[in-house]
Simulated assay, not measured.
Amino acid sequence: MKLSVIILNYNVRYFLEVCLKSVVAAIQNIDAEIIVVDNQSSDDSCTMVKTLFPEVNLIENKENFGFSKGNNIGVSQAKGAYVCILNPDTVVAEDTFEKLLKFADIQPKLGAVGCKLIDGTGGFLPESKRNIPTPKVALKKILGQDELYYANGLNEHSTGEVEVLVGAFMLIKREVYLAVNGFDEDYFMYGEDVDLSYKILKAGFKNYYFGDTTVIHFKGESTLRDKEYAKRFNGSMQIFYRKHFKNNVLVEQLVGLGIKGLTVLNLQPKIENRVVKSVVLISKKQNINLNVALGCKVQLKPKMEIVEDHQQYILDNNWLTFKEIIQILEQYKTNKTLTFRILSKQSNFILGSDNTVSKGIVVHF
């Protein structure tokens, strides 16, 4: 088997459904399997998977084991030569895996490869490609200097070697994953992707950023930026420094204090609400139920034509491919007044996200 897609889920049933639909479409020409590991969700995620995706290997954990252990459980049952660690609040294009596998197959000493991630407004997520947060890099970031933290030397549309990939999307050779013992289970959430990327490099393999395919990551959906987030993020970074930079105790303490201060300052990020003056459905068929659900008249257009400020665009996956939806978000990302929602194929809900720090939006009709 060529590919195993591992999706760790926790209480994001509707985002998981759209994610799975995109993955199913993307593996049509690949010998692949999908493994969903559920960390004791209290919503009906598992029922949805069993009903709509009976071909998926569903693992129902009896407790929330966290990100690292949950994904390790999934990989332990994987059969693919490659495993893709994928967040449930993502949408992949129909050709994402084909492009990445073609690239990965010809790279000597490949460890892991990531791709271009965008948020729900089309904005590029710089954590798609990062550098190792050495004490020097971390201290500079704390002081507001990001040029060393992100791999800015590599253009977001380019392809090349990078040090750190983000856990929302990591394509890894399964033998490499097992050789470095996968995600370190000392991390419950956050920091484990940095740790894994670093372990891969130290084992003599190479990590790559691939800028020729784009994946939506509704960042902020799986976890809110609250006090618990700050606590876990701080704890994860402390683990990382103890494991990999333990010889420099003074710097570790300074970085630790800086991280604590940084997370406290960022607990209440500024969120600019986008005003919606009109709603447009990009589809070939009107859906009158949307008018009722949204409390307004929804215009129908077959494609993005005249774009006006403060419009919300509902992108119908019954009409548009996932790749076309992704391309629309990227095309109009500079207009900060627009919002986007995805109408899931053969479903009665729309979803999206207007920022990267609060929960995404799901509207039923």
Rank of each mutant, 00 (worst) to 15 (best):
residue 301 K to F: 01
residue 13 R to M: 08
residue 109 K to T: 09
residue 217 H to N: 15
residue 183 F to L: 15
residue 282 I to F: 10
residue 64 N to Q: 09
residue 60 E to C: 14
residue 183 F to Q: 07
residue 270 K to D: 05
residue 74 G to E: 07
residue 145 Q to K: 14
residue 86 L to C: 07
residue 120 G to P: 00
residue 197 S to F: 05
residue 100 L to T: 02
residue 344 S to F: 03
residue 260 K to R: 13
residue 356 T to S: 14
residue 340 F to K: 07
residue 283 S to W: 09
residue 352 G to P: 02
residue 266 N to A: 11
residue 305 E to C: 02
residue 295 G to T: 09
residue 292 V to T: 13
residue 324 E to R: 10
residue 107 Q to F: 00
residue 233 F to M: 12
residue 78 A to L: 08
residue 163 E to I: 01
residue 208 Y to R: 10
residue 77 Q to S: 06
residue 176 V to G: 11
residue 20 L to H: 08
residue 39 N to C: 12
residue 124 F to M: 04
residue 282 I to Q: 04
residue 236 S to T: 06
residue 105 D to M: 07
residue 54 P to F: 09
residue 62 K to N: 15
residue 28 Q to A: 14
residue 71 N to Y: 11
residue 117 L to P: 00
residue 71 N to P: 00
residue 333 K to M: 00
residue 270 K to G: 03
residue 189 M to D: 02
residue 58 L to I: 08
residue 170 M to N: 06
residue 248 N to D: 10
residue 181 N to E: 12
residue 285 K to A: 12
residue 77 Q to R: 11
residue 234 N to S: 15
residue 244 H to P: 00
residue 10 Y to H: 14
residue 230 A to K: 07
residue 361 I to E: 11
residue 243 K to P: 00
residue 63 E to D: 10
residue 147 E to P: 01
residue 224 L to Q: 11
residue 350 I to C: 04
residue 161 E to T: 15
residue 126 P to A: 08
residue 24 V to E: 14
residue 216 I to K: 04
residue 84 C to P: 02
residue 235 G to K: 11
residue 258 G to S: 08
